[in-house]
Write a protein that binds this DNA or RNA. Structure first.
Lengths: 224, 224
DNA sequence: CTGCTTTCGCTACAGGTCGTAGCGTAACTG
DNA sequence: CAGTTACGCTACGACCTGTAGCGAAAGCAG
C-alpha cells in the first residue's frame, strides 16, 4: 500500500481536472513538456475501458496500451487508478444544466432526467459507486471526488431555487446558513435517491417515477 | 443464530444466507459434513478484515488465515469475495427495527438514526458501496444483494406506513400497485439520501439534519 | 469394525496486476 | 551548445487469484 507520497514527480497533481494544470506563472518550462495529446488519449482510453471492462477490469497496463503510451507515463501523471478515474469521469458531469423551464416542477423533472441519463452511461455506472467506495477509506480521495464531481453540481440546486424564488414559487431565504443546509439536503436527496434507484435497485427512471418523486420533493417546499 | 440443531435437517437455511446454497434435492449428509464453526469463523473474520483493511485490503488469503481455515475451504463455500461479503454484511442489516413510537415522524427519525449508526460502522462503510459498485456489472450479484440486503429492509417502510394508517396519519392505500410504487420511492429516498450524506458527502447525521429531512418526507405524505 | 464419501489443511502452481527502477532517446530552453 | 525533463521500453519483486494434488479426518451405511 502506498503509505507515503509515491510520486517523486516534481508536480504533485492533487488538484484540478488536468494533471498538468500548471497554475498561472508556474514557470514549468524547463525540460521537455508533457504531451497534452497523451493526456487526452489517456483520459479517453480510461473512459472507454471503463465502459467496456468495468471498474474491476480496468488496469493501468490496459489503459496505457490502449492510449498508446507507456505505463510509466501514466504513473508519472496519476499516482493511482482512483485519481485517474476521477479526472476521466468528472468532465461527464459538467454537461448537467439547469434549464429554467418556467416552473420549479419542470426544472426538477428535467434535471432528474439528465442525471438519470448520465447514470445510464456505462462509464458512469462503472466508475461512480466504485469511486465513492474508495473514497470512504481515503479522505484525500473523497475530498478530490467532492471537489471535482459532487460539489460542482450543487450549483443546479442553487440555480433552481433562485429561479423559483424569482418566480415567487419559493420564499426568499431567511438566513444564509439555513439556506446552505437546505441546499445540501435537497442535493443529497436528489442525487442519493436517483443513484439508489438506478444503481442499486437497478430499475429505470420513468417519467411516472420522476413525477411521483417530484411530488415528494415539492410538498414541503411549496407548503411552507 | 444457527444453534447446532441435531435434528434431521442438516442445512438450516437462514433466508438463503447459507453459503453455496445447494438447491432442493441436493444430496446431503453423505460424507463429512461441513463445519458450521468454520462458517462463523469465516464470516466473523470477513467483517473484522473489512473493518480493519477495507474492501481493497481484504483478500481471500487473509480471511482464511484469520479464520484459521485453509484458503481452499473458503473457495469451497463462496465462489468469490463479492458473495462472501454479501453474506458477511447482510446480517448487520437485520438489526434494523421499526419501533412504532406513536407518530410517523418519530418512527421515521428513529429508523433514520438506526440506519445512520449502521452506516457509521467501518465494516458497513467498507463493504456497502463496494458491493453496490460490483453489482452494477454483475446482474447475478446485484440480485443477491437485493435479496439479502436491500429488499428485506423495505419491510420497515411497509410497517411504518401500516402503523401510520392505523393511527389515521395516512390514508389507506388506494390500490396495491400504487402502494407498492410508493413504498419503493420512499425506500429509495431514505436509503439513498442517508447513504449519500454519510458515505459520499462524508458528513454526519445529526438530529437537526434528521428533523429537516423528515420535514421533507412528511410534506406530501400528510397533505394528501 | 470396514468401506465409501466428502471435507479439511497444507503446499504448490500458473497467470495476472502493481508500482518502481534503469536505460537510451526525444523534445524543448537558455 | 549543454542542461533538463518527458518518453518508450524492458525487467523486476511482491502480491493476489483460483485451481490442483496430497494425505488425513469425520461422518454414514452395511
Amino acid at each position: 500500500m502506498p503509505a507515503a507520497q509515491p510520486s517523486a514527480s516534481p508536480d504533485d497533481t492533487v488538484r484540478g481536472s488536468t494533471p498538468q494544470d500548471d497554475g498561472p506563472g508556474a514557470s514549468r518550462a524547463k525540460g521537455r513538456p508533457r504531451s497534452a495529446a497523451a493526456d487526452l488519449a489517456i483520459l479517453d482510453a480510461t473512459r472507454e475501458a471503463l465502459a467496456e471492462l468495468g471498474w474491476g477490469g480496468l488496469t493501468m497496463g490496459h489503459v496505457a496500451g490502449r492510449a498508446g503510451v507507456a505505463k510509466t507515463t501514466l504513473y508519472r501523471r496519476w499516482p493511482s487508478k482512483n485519481e485517474l478515474v476521477v479526472d476521466a469521469v468528472a468532465s461527464l458531469f459538467d454537461d448537467l444544466v439547469m434549464p429554467d423551464l418556467g416552473s420549479l416542477r419542470a426544472d426538477i423533472e428535467a434535471v432528474v432526467g439528465q442525471f438519470a441519463d448520465l447514470l445510464a452511461r456505462p462509464e458512469t455506472q462503472a466508475a461512480l459507486l466504485a469511486l465513492f467506495a474508495e473514497g470512504t477509506r481515503d479522505p484525500h480521495l473523497r475530498r478530490r471526488i467532492r471537489e471535482a464531481i459532487v460539489d460542482p453540481q450543487k450549483r443546479l440546486v442553487r440555480q433552481g431555487r433562485a429561479a423559483a424564488q424569482a418566480r415567487g414559487e419559493l420564499e426568499a431565504d431567511a438566513c444564509p446558513a439555513s439556506a446552505h443546509e437546505e441546499v445540501d439536503i435537497i442535493f443529497d436527496t436528489i442525487a442519493g435517491t436517483v443513484e439508489h434507484r438506478v444503481l442499486v435497485s437497478g430499475e429505470p427512471i420513468t417519467p411516472e417515477w420522476t413525477r411521483r418523486f417530484t411530488d415528494l420533493l415539492l410538498g414541503p417546499l411549496t407548503s411552507g
